[in-house]
Each structure stands twice: as C-alpha cells, then as structure tokens.
Nucleic acid binder design. Structure first.
Lengths: 110, 110
DNA sequence: CAGGATACCTAAGATAATTAGGTATCCTGT
DNA sequence: ACAGGATACCTAATTATCTTAGGTATCCTG
C-alpha cells in the first residue's frame, strides 16, 4: 500500500487499535501483524513507525517494557490508561470520518 | 472536520467525485457542496483547494472555463477524458483502502 | 559464512495539508 | 451611505506526516 496518500494520518489509529486488540506488542511485530491482517496490503514503514511510537510514549499514551529474546532486545509497547481512552476516541473519529466520506461517494444512500 | 489528520490525501478523490457527480463546478461551489453533503462536517479549506485544482489542471485531469456572473468571475472546472478515468481509479483506491482498514478495525468480520 | 529475516534506530527530503494573509464584488441592514 | 458577511479568486509560510535511505546488530538457513 502507501502508493496512495490516503494512508497519511491513519497510522496512529492503526497502532492504537492493534495494541488494543493484542495487549502488548513490539515495533517489528506491529508491522508484521498489520501485514498479516491485510494480507500484505498494509506495509508500515519503520521510518514512520518508530518515531510515532516514541511520540506516543512521550505523550503518555503508550508505555514500554524492554525484554530480551536470546541476545536480542524487544521493546514492548502497551496502552496506558490514557492510551485506552485515546484508542476508543481515535476509533470513533475514524468511523465518523468514513461515514462522512461515504456521503460524498455514495450520495444516494444519504 | 480536519481536526484529525485522516483527511490528508482524501481531497483529490473527493474533488474528482464531486465533479463526476455534478458535471462542472467552480472552486467555491465545491467547498459548499462538500459542506452540504456532509451536513457541515467536511470543511475544504481554500488554501488546500485552489493549489490542488491548479495542479490537476496542469496534469490534464481537469479543464477550465471562465465565466462571469454579473461582474464576478467564476472558474468552472470539469473532468477531462483522462480525468474521468482518474476519478474511477481514485474511487477504487479509496474503496480498497477502506476495506483494508476495516481488516484492522473489525478483524472479526475478516 | 553469505544472505535474508528479525529488531532497533535516525536524518534528509517529499507531500499535503493548515494558517494567515491578500484582492474584489455583491447584498443586506441600519 | 456604508459596515459587514457572503461570494469568489489567489498565494506564501509553516506544520504535520510520511518515504527514502541509510546505520547497527543478532539469528538462522543453505
């Protein structure tokens, strides 16, 4: 995906939703899960993902635990209490945004 | 709207769709029609609209006719042949993008 | 032991909007 | 008569968000 600029602005709600559904995840895992759920259509680039995760942690939306798998580190992210609220809200925003779009693209059913 | 960054990248398909449905429109009219169809939720800013219209004309997607209503000019935009193709394609892209999003946000129904 | 997958990261550039202006006409109310 | 809101066009500076293109390092398979 990402050929289209449509993707812009959707990354944050996507991440919050994945963390809501899966409890806690590390960065690389998030990219794999998104790819899996969309059968390869959604490719989250690491250059977008990591800076966003850091911003969300900074903002108190996410919290981290670092663990090691063998000799390799994994930084697990999960929703804070504020993050859970945020994930609900961002889902609602996305839902309502899509509803409004459909008023443009399917005016008959309006 | 536009509090959310979701809107980014959607303006072009929206404009193409409105022109497809309404034949020909001038800039200000596009903003009003979008507002009307979404009952006030979609506010297309002129700073985004006009430069985009110019780019689409430059690209041969849109063509213009200037008319005057009283002493005031109106620049009407309509889809070229290439523009009609483009409007179909951009609709399909939007549709498929939303389908993929729904795989993230409603994984049960996948 | 090369190469792909796993796992983290950042910086420079591109893209696409917002914000905040500018110009000018038309119409309504006081 | 004229202030102010709607109509109608436009652009430039800034901001937000992503892509591209790197960098480091471990693990596993052929």
């Amino acid at each position: 995906m990402q050929k289209s600029a449509l993707y812009k602005g959707c990354l944050e709600p996507i991440i919050l939703q994945l963390l809501k559904d899966n409890g806690r995840m590390y960065g690389y895992q998030i990219t794999q899960k998104a790819r899996e759920l969309t059968r390869g259509h959604l490719d989250i680039t690491e250059g977008a993902l990591y800076p966003l995760l850091h911003r969300l942690e900074e903002a108190g939306i996410l919290e981290t635990e670092i663990e090691s798998a063998g000799n390799r580190m994994r930084k697990y992210y999960s929703l804070t209490k504020a993050g859970k609220k945020q994930s609900v809200q961002s889902f609602q925003e996305l839902q309502s945004f899509i509803d409004h779009l459909s008023l443009i693209f399917q005016p008959k059913t309006a």
